[in-house]
C-alpha cells in the first residue's frame, strides 16, 4: 500500500470513529509545528531570563532559537513562499499575531544584539537604534510568550484545547523553557553565578505549570464534553500516554527535580546543570507534543445520538 493510500485508509477509519483524532498538527510534517512552538517558547522565555540575569550569551542563544523556530514554522506551511500574507489578519487571527510577534522579535533582537556582542560596531548600546531594537524585541517577546496558548484556545474543533487555562499554561512553559535555556547557557559558560536563584525560579515556575496542567485536566474531566474527556483519556491512558509519563513526568519533572534537589543540598556540577536544563526543556517539548496529539475533534454524531 502506498503512503497516499495508507493515509486515505487512515482517514476513512478516523471519519468513521466517534472521536476523530486530530492529525494535522503533530503528525508527519505537522511535527514541525510542535518543534517550532517549542523553539519559539524557549526563545521568548530565554530572552526574558537573559535580560533579568544579564546574560549576553543567553540573549544570543534565545535569538538563534527564535530564528530556528521561525524557519521550522515556515517548513510546516504548505506554501512557505506566501508567508508574508500572514500579517494580514492581525485583528482576528492569533496565528497572524504570532507571526508579527516573531518578526518584531527577530528584527528588534538583531538591532539590540549587535552592540551587545560587538560594542565597537556600527551602533552603540545606548543608541536610538539599539533602544528601538530593545523595544521591538520586548514587544515581540511578550507576543511570542502569549500567542501560542491562544492559538489552541481559539481552535474550537478540539475541545481539550479550549480551556481558558491553556494560555496561562503556555506562558508558564515559556518561562520554564527560559530558565532551562539559561541553565544550559551558564553550564556552557562554566558560570555558577546566581545558580541558586535560577534553581528557586525553576521550582516556582514548575510548580505553577504543574498546577495549571492538573487544573486543566481536572476541568476537562469535570466540566468538559465527551471529546475533551476522551482527550484526557488519550493523554493519561491512551495513544499518547507514553509521552505523558515518560516525557512530561519523568524527563520533564522527576529527573530535573532530583537534580535541583542535589543542587540545593550541595554543589551542582556543570554537567548536572546542563542536564537539568536539557531535561526540563525536553519535558516542555513533550508537554506540547502530547497535548497536541491528544486532541480529538468535536463529534457531530456520537453513540448518544446527534448533538
Amino acid at each position: 500500500m502506498s503512503d497516499s493510500q495508507a493515509k486515505y485508509q487512515q482517514m476513512l477509519i478516523d471519519l468513521r470513529s466517534d472521536f476523530r483524532p486530530q492529525r494535522d498538527w503533530g503528525e508527519g510534517r505537522g511535527l514541525l509545528l510542535v518543534v517550532g512552538h517549542f523553539f519559539v517558547g524557549v526563545a521568548a522565555g530565554g530572552w526574558l531570563m537573559s535580560l533579568i540575569f544579564a546574560s549576553s550569551n543567553g540573549l544570543l542563544l534565545s535569538y538563534l532559537l527564535a530564528a530556528l523556530g521561525g524557519v521550522v514554522h515556515l517548513g510546516f506551511l504548505g506554501h512557505p513562499e506566501r508567508y508574508w500574507r500572514m500579517m494580514r489578519r492581525v485583528k482576528t487571527s492569533w496565528v497572524s499575531r504570532g507571526f508579527v510577534g516573531i518578526t518584531l522579535f527577530l528584527v528588534g533582537g538583531f538591532l539590540y544584539l549587535v552592540p551587545v556582542l560587538w560594542p565597537t560596531g556600527l551602533w552603540g548600546g545606548g543608541s536610538i537604534t539599539a533602544m528601538l531594537g530593545y523595544g521591538m524585541a520586548a514587544i515581540g517577546m511578550v507576543v511570542m510568550i502569549g500567542y501560542m496558548g491562544f492559538v489552541y484556545t481559539a481552535s474550537r474543533a478540539i475541545p481539550f484545547w479550549n480551556s481558558p487555562l491553556h494560555p496561562a499554561l503556555y506562558v508558564g512553559y515559556a518561562l520554564r523553557g527560559g530558565v532551562a535555556a539559561l541553565l544550559v547557557t551558564r553550564a556552557l559558560e562554566a558560570n555558577l553565578d546566581q545558580v541558586n536563584q535560577l534553581l528557586v525560579l525553576w521550582i516556582a515556575v514548575t510548580v505553577a505549570v504543574t498546577l495549571f496542567y492538573v487544573l486543566e485536566i481536572h476541568g476537562a474531566l469535570s466540566s468538559g464534553n465527551a471529546a475533551a474527556r476522551r482527550s484526557v483519556h488519550e493523554l493519561l491512558a491512551g495513544r499518547v500516554s507514553a509521552y505523558f509519563y515518560g516525557g512530561i513526568l519523568l524527563l520533564g519533572i522527576i529527573l530535573p527535580a532530583f537534580l535541583v534537589w542535589t543542587g540545593m543540598s550541595g554543589p551542582l556540577t556543570l554537567g548536572a546543570m546542563a542536564l537539568l536544563g536539557v531535561a526540563s526543556a525536553g519535558g516542555d517539548f513533550f508537554m506540547k507534543y502530547a497535548t497536541i496529539r491528544a486532541g480529538v475533534h468535536l463529534p457531530l454524531l456520537t453513540r448518544a445520538g446527534a448533538r
Binding site: G78, H79, R85, M86, R88, R89, S93, V95, S155, R156
Partner: peptide, 30 residues
C-alpha cells in the same frame, strides 16, 4: 482564524477559500 484572509465570506453569505492566498497552516481546520 485564517491568518492570511484566504478564508472569506461572499456577499451572498457563502464561506469560501481563495487557494492563491492560503499558506496551508490548517488553523481554519482546527
Amino acid at each position: 482564524a485564517c491568518p492570511t484572509g484566504a478564508s472569506f465570506i461572499w456577499e451572498d453569505g457563502t464561506v469560501d477559500i481563495d487557494p492563491d492566498q492560503c499558506v496551508g497552516c490548517r488553523s481554519c481546520m482546527m
